[in-house]
Amino acid sequence: MLISVGLLVWALATSLQSAEGFAMVHELFTGFIAKFILWGILTALGYHLVAGIRHMIMDMGYFEELVSGRITAQISFVLGIVLSVLAGVWLW
């Protein structure tokens, strides 16, 4: 996630500082490589968010048994994949 945020801050900085910078970033994101990297970032962020929410629910005492923990873990995997697919559809 650290690398992801670094890249995003770089893109924000470049795109805001000048019209040329914006054009360069905008142009970059029409190419496959940048889209693939962004897709990776969004996938990682999506899963991190879902697992984080699950974790905060667990803080309240839920999903702490073997069965419930296992099921909600699998659900968070599925949700992470769903978000990743959505990000892919949006990017391509």
Binding site: L2, V5, G6, V9, L12, A13, L16, Q17
Partner: peptide
């Protein structure tokens, strides 16, 4: 290294959004 990187992100963010 991680803490410094995070502080750099913060500073970069501030210096970028400030003058927009």
């Amino acid at each position: 290294v991680v803490s410094v990187a995070l502080i750099v992100y913060w500073l970069a963010g501030l210096l970028v959004v400030w003058p927009v």
